[in-house]
Nucleic acid binder design. Structure first.
Lengths: 188, 188
DNA sequence: AATGCTAGAGAACTTTCGTTCTCAAAGCAA
DNA sequence: TTGCTTTGAGAACGAAAGTTCTCTAGCATT
């Protein structure tokens, strides 16, 4: 099974193109050129461009979730698990072709006019907050810390995307250390 | 001077429409319908849609900068000035029709394919970071605090936009309090 | 070998959108 | 009034993009 299905190749290529140039700037013909798959075959695999967009978002969610939770699972200490999130972000920002969180970008581009896109982005971000909240619970800290850490992660993503630098991950990590320490300190 | 110029009316209306539906979803005809200004007059005031987009961004930057710095100037204490930023964000998120930071949205939608838009967004965010950095300096804290506080603000904006809630401003404010306290604590 | 099915390449169709053009009405000068 | 300029309303134009259609070449089956 070296060969990937037409669907998978389309999702992969569309994801790359959408990430690079935005969704609306990429036409079906661009996708045809990039993949070598005929328009007829594309429309045989997906009923519309919108279906491709949603499939790309679904795959991105799965990949991201799997990748992040695996990365965190390699760390044993509950507190270090939380910080590992920002190490993960740093590596992500360092990848060539990083252009920001695809969900934030999709939301900004289509969220106002495309309810299906909006819903998937909201679900993705909710899932991320839940993930952080579980780590926070495991570290025996109060739930408010989870909201704070999630905001740091989101801010690091947009800052890295716009400024084109990776340092926001380091700053967010340092801030997270302080917030975690404060949250774990017994409040009299 | 009750009457605003054609330019100002176009910038105002375009800003509202772009904020509500995204930039690419709003056509010149929509702008004509919204303002009642003929296409000929629109193209008399601006050479292209792109020029309108840039004018909207410029106006948004001026409005935002003026409004935020005025709000902060009402507070005397240097530490409280920093926290006032998040109060400002909270009020902004609470406005009806809030759909996220227009600069983040514009960047996501057009940053990859429109260098002029990208540059304005980058300049706006740099200006915000500089603004925070000056407040941090005035509070006699280290520069790293400025990066952390800016990340919190960005994260609060995207979180509020996607989730459609205002609570991220409160969480960011609470986190900022902790980070400020930690930064002002003498490090041995 | 002949026939029928599949699939690819890209032309064609339709809609949308940015931009320009036409035409007629209205204001204004002499 | 007459003629000139300006301006608005919207038609028209050209390009782009999503979707469908046609035609042909290749392949399988009998």
């Amino acid at each position: 099974m070296i060969e990937k299905s037409v669907r998978d190749r389309l999702i992969g290529s569309a994801g790359d193109l959408y990430n690079l140039r935005g969704i609306q700037s990429v036409g079906m013909d661009d996708l045809r050129t990039a993949t070598g798959i005929s328009l007829k075959a594309i429309y045989g695999a997906f009923p519309s461009k919108n279906a491709i967009i949603l499939a790309v978002l679904d795959k991105r969610h799965d990949d991201w979730t799997t990748s992040l939770s695996h990365r965190v699972s390699l760390v044993a200490d509950p507190e270090e698990k939380l910080l590992e999130v920002y190490e993960y972000l740093f590596d992500w920002f360092s990848e060539p072709g990083f252009r920001g969180c695809g969900f934030i970008n999709s939301f900004a581009e289509l969220g106002a006019v495309n309810p299906e896109v909006r819903q998937r982005v909201q679900e993705h971000k909710e899932a991320f907050q839940t993930f952080i909240a579980e780590l926070v619970t495991a570290a025996h800290a109060e739930p408010e810390l989870a909201a704070q850490l999630a905001i740091l992660a989101e801010g690091a993503q947009t800052t890295a995307a716009i400024a084109g630098t990776t340092s926001s991950a380091k700053h967010a990590r340092r801030a997270a250390e302080i917030l975690i320490a404060a949250a774990l300190m017994p409040t009299p």
